[in-house]
Every structure is written in structure tokens, then in C-alpha cells.
Design a protein around this nucleic acid. Sequence first.
DNA 1: TGGCAAGCAAATGTCTGACAATTAGAAAGT
DNA 2: ACTTTCTAATTGTCAGACATTTGCTTGCCA
Lengths: 240, 240
Amino acid sequence: MKTDLNENEDLSTQIAEAIRDAIIEGSLIVDQRLPSEAELCEKFDVGRSTVREALKRLAAQNLIRTQRGAAGGAFVNRMSFEEAYDQQITTSTLLLSMNRVDFETACEARYALERSCAPLSAQRRTPDQLATMRAEIHRQSQPGLTDEAFCASDVAFHRALVDGAGNPVLSYQLAGAVEAMQPLMNMITYTQRDRDRIIALHSQIADALEAKDAAAANARLIDLETETLKLAKSAFAARR
Amino acid sequence: MKTDLNENEDLSTQIAEAIRDAIIEGSLIVDQRLPSEAELCEKFDVGRSTVREALKRLAAQNLIRTQRGAAGGAFVNRMSFEEAYDQQITTSTLLLSMNRVDFETACEARYALERSCAPLSAQRRTPDQLATMRAEIHRQSQPGLTDEAFCASDVAFHRALVDGAGNPVLSYQLAGAVEAMQPLMNMITYTQRDRDRIIALHSQIADALEAKDAAAANARLIDLETETLKLAKSAFAARR
DNA sequence: TGGCAAGCAAATGTCTGACAATTAGAAAGT
DNA sequence: ACTTTCTAATTGTCAGACATTTGCTTGCCA
């Protein structure tokens, strides 16, 4: 691990980068204990608060975890899929909401990515995942559902579709794309008619996946994208 | 913003979460200045180091940036695509390298995602992006190229393909999938014959995109996936 | 009046020392 | 053998001090 720090960046930033690089490069391996804060102070020749700030930076990225007590310390963390999901979703959500990404762009990306899952999902979806989709469809058709709850259920449906591909890496990559759209979708007001159309498409998608018909699933996803885009367009037009 | 902290988590974690939620929820908007460290100390009733550790956590996630001096402080950061890229790549790389994700799974995810870009890229790729692809193909065919450099060029080629879709959200989502594979690809030893086959497929892909032939691009991507998988399988078999 | 320099004030960055809280393991006692 | 107690190591938190950076004010001088 590099222990020299010269640049004009913050010391804590440099230290965090040095440790992060060591983790990525592999000279610090999973579950290995880092030197104690006191040792790091000596090694980098800085005060304890500086070291601590560096460690907090790494903890925020799930690169390390800390444990108090006698045999405690900072340990290289095995990045879990769940942690990676959360990070992905936070980052994607903020990226979309802060960068005035137009709805069309986000929507196009999302459905392009989802369609890439469809063939795999048609092959591999489990009965459990099909049941989840049906359950969400049922929830969506219940009267008195708020727009927000409808959107949340929509997300759950699509997650089941994605998970159906049985590829955790794919699920992880798609998590951001699917979830980050929710705040944008929430800006739409859905009439009963809109909901009915969406629910019908969801049903057809579930049917296609159950029948292992990848082409049909793909076609209905395209329809759904078109439908979503149309809804958004009129919603944003009405807003003005 | 919530200012109460009870749970048994670290104070700095709770404070960071409170501020993060305020940013996501929208009550702190882009470029808005957070209260000074001293003010946050009062508001949360904690010491300054605790506040600072919380702020460093947020800075590590690119949620805020800090500025020294009179009019300085912590400001809500507009998450840039570039920052999001870097985070994505770091997270994805670690997720793959630490979780013993098998090559097949990662490869399947990557090519599934890339194929979702192909139709868009066939429509929209710029001459510039085509030129980048050709340049990388040329680099790949140069003699004496190390395996590592070959892989790096491979990544650059695929990034150009993805960027060809002209959708920054898509580029962002795929950054992780494409780049995180590099360490895995680096474990393969490429014979000249292997390289020739890959280069030929790259050429055909570039040709297809130039001709705006989405179907052909898709077909060649499938071939490339098969080829890559075959290479990996024999490489890992040889290792044992 | 205009410009320049010095100084001031506010803010973050860093260091030091102290104490609190937690925890594993050693030591002691039964 | 078991339980209790003690101890040492380590992170979590606090307080105070000083360093550094930077925008703004103030005052001087031409």
C-alpha cells in the first residue's frame, strides 16, 4: 500500500484512495483486518481524526466494515449483492433526478435493458416469480389504489421479471434502471383507463413468460414502452 | 430533516442517513449549502468530529462537495455522469471479484446488456464512434500486444459500441457490466488464433453498425459471446 | 474616485489528548 | 469444569487548539 501523500487533495481523501486501491488491486483480501487506527496514524504520519475520516469514506462505499472491541478493527468487506443494489439505486435515482434526464431517455434505457432480460426470463422464470407477477397484477387492479402504490407495484412486477432471468449480475445492473424510474413515473396521473391498459400488458407479459414465448414477451414490452411514453408525454404536456 | 438519533447505530451513520434522505427526498436541492459544521453540531447535539465523519461519508458517495474558506461549506452536489460511472465501475468490479461470480454468469449478463444497445447503436452511431471502433480493432491486430492491452482495447471497443446508442443513461448502466469484466478477461491467455477470431467478429460488428444492420450486429454479438465463453472454459480448464 | 494592500472573519482541515463503550480473552475463584 | 471478574485493545465521541483557505471589508494612497 502506498503511504506517501503529497498532492493538494485532502489527506483523508488520499488515504482512502490508497486503501481502496489496495483492496481493488487485491493486496488486501476479503475479511482481512486492516491495521488499527493507531497503526494507520503512524504509517501515514497523520492524526487519528484524519485516518478515521478516511475509514468512514470507505465504509460509506461498503468497502470496509468496522467492529468495536478487543479483536475489533476495520475489515475488508465482501461486497454483497444487496449492498450493491442499494448503492446502485441511490446513485441512479440521484443521477436521474438531478440531471434533468428527459423521460424519453430514461424510459428508452430502461426498456432496452428489460428486453435483454426477457428471453432469459422466458427460459428460466420460476413458478415463484410468476406468482409474484400475478400477485402484483392483482394488486394493481384493486380499486382505490393510489398512484404511488400503483407505481410501487409496477416496480415490483418488473423486478420479478428481471429476477426471472436467474442471473444475479443482471438483476443488480437492472436494479438501478428499474427503481430510479419510479420517481419519474410518480409524476404521472393514471386514469383508470391507463391502468387497465398497463395491467392488460402486464398480464400478457406474464402469460408470455409462462408460455416461454420470448418473442411475445419482447413485443409486449415494446408495447408497454410505447404506452408509457405516450402517458408521460400527455402528462408533461398537461403540466404546462 | 430529522434531527433525532436514538438507535444503536453510530451517530455519524445516523446523521449521514438523515442528510442523505433529505437530499433524495428533495428538501435539500442541488447546490444548496448545508449548515456549517458548527451549526450541524448544535442541530444534532454532537461533537464536531462526528459531524465531519458523517459529511465524509456523504462526500464519498458524491452526494456533497466541500469548499474551504469564508463562503465555503458543504454543498449538495449535482451527481455527474462521470462520477456515477466511476462508482458503478468500482462497485461492479468488487462485486464480481469478491463474490466468486462465475464467468458464465457475468458474461451472459454483459452480452445480454450489450445486445440491448445494438439496435439503438445501429441507428445512431456517429462516424466518430465508428472510427473509434476501427481504431481499436487496428490496435488489437498489432503484433506484440500484451494480453492486458488487448483486453483494455476490447473494453474500449465495446464502450464505443455502447456509447453509439446515444443514450447516456444506457452508457452509465453498462459501464459497470463492461468494465467489471476486464479483470476476469485478463485471466485468459489469448493465442494469436483466438485474437484473430475476436478481431474478425469485431470487424463484422463494426460493419453491421455502419450498415445500420441491427440484426447482423446482434448475431455477431451472440457469436462473440459464444467465442468468449469457449475461450474462458478452456482457460479455466487448463488452470486446473 | 479608483485601485491596492492589509487585515479580518468564517469556514473547513488537521492534530492532540481525553474519556466512553464495547468486546475478546486472560485470570481468578469456586 | 464452570462462572465471574479483570484487563487490554480497539473503535466511538467529545473538546479545544491551531493551520489553511478564501471572500469581504477597511483604510490608505495616488
